[in-house]
Nucleic acid binder design. Structure first.
Lengths: 151, 151
DNA sequence: CCAGATCAGTTCAGTTTCTGCACCGGTACA
DNA sequence: TGTACCGGTGCAGAAACTGAACTGATCTGG
């Protein structure tokens, strides 16, 4: 079992977690999901040191999650927009948000909720299986080697 | 909109992301989900520096995601087990795994897959809404202030 | 009875990374 | 002419990370 887990190393998940496990990265992406695109607004909202923000934005652009877009010329002004790859991370961030709301929130409840267009309700997200529609949690599933498994 | 996002600061999500955004944290939890409990095995599987591992385990225990359990006396030997709160993070990690498989994996496909007990298939996870069952993604949802919103 | 192996950690010194703060260059506005 | 805006950089000190060796207590094989 631990040998199985061990093969993950350096693989897709490892790389995903290496990207995402960089303190400010997910916070920046969260802002992006809420529509923030500008350097200055990111710096102000997050309270992140500006050189750190510059560094993170660069790695996110290099990784293809954000793109740096000229939005005004002379002097050239750039903003940062989510790419499709970046937008696909939304689910993971929402899952994290939900966990935080459940386990770390104050008594008042979550500071922000998500209105779901499909039903008009406040979204109550859970992970389900596309095949059977049943929930996926730690007990409902067993890991096994996939096609990209290396011996 | 950016003001809305801004209130998140220091809130549940912020804290969740601060915890999780610590390079090795999610990797350690991933191992834990696959059944790894021992210090030595974690160190070997992840290739994490041992002092770093010690530090991370301590913060995870302090945060209530793992518990340090005596499994053999004289000399006292401890292992690390997921708490319920830790187990609840499984969904978020799976979502991240899936994103990594989709955007960062090699051509062979994911190195590890999850067999879903409910249907016997390889789990194909997606985020859905408990109210309507429809998918939740960046386009399907709009953030708004929740009960814990602070002015 | 002794040499190794196990195992959860710690110590230490060196390197990398982060942080805070000031600052730049170019423009628009008053 | 002075100030505010805006994306971004430079620098020095603080904090975190890293690798390699080491600890202390026990068990195992010869």
């Amino acid at each position: 079992m631990d040998d199985l887990a061990h093969r993950f190393e350096g693989e897709s998940v490892g790389r995903a977690l290496a990207l995402v496990g960089e303190r400010w990265t997910l916070l920046i992406l969260r802002e992006a999901f809420f529509g923030v695109r500008r350097y200055g607004v990111l710096a102000r909202n997050l309270g992140i040191p500006r050189p750190t923000l510059s560094a993170r934005l660069r790695t996110l652009v290099d990784a293809g999650l954000l793109e740096r877009v000229l939005y005004a010329p002379a002097p050239d002004r750039y903003e940062y927009r989510l790419t499709d790859a970046g937008r696909d991370l939304f689910g993971a961030i929402v899952a994290l948000m939900r966990w935080g709301d459940e386990h770390l929130a104050g008594p008042e409840g979550p500071p922000i909720v998500l209105r779901h267009h499909a039903c008009g309700e406040i979204a109550d997200p859970r992970l389900t299986c596309r095949h059977c529609g049943q929930e996926i949690d730690a007990h409902a599933v067993t890991p096994e080697p996939g096609p990209g498994f290396r011996a």
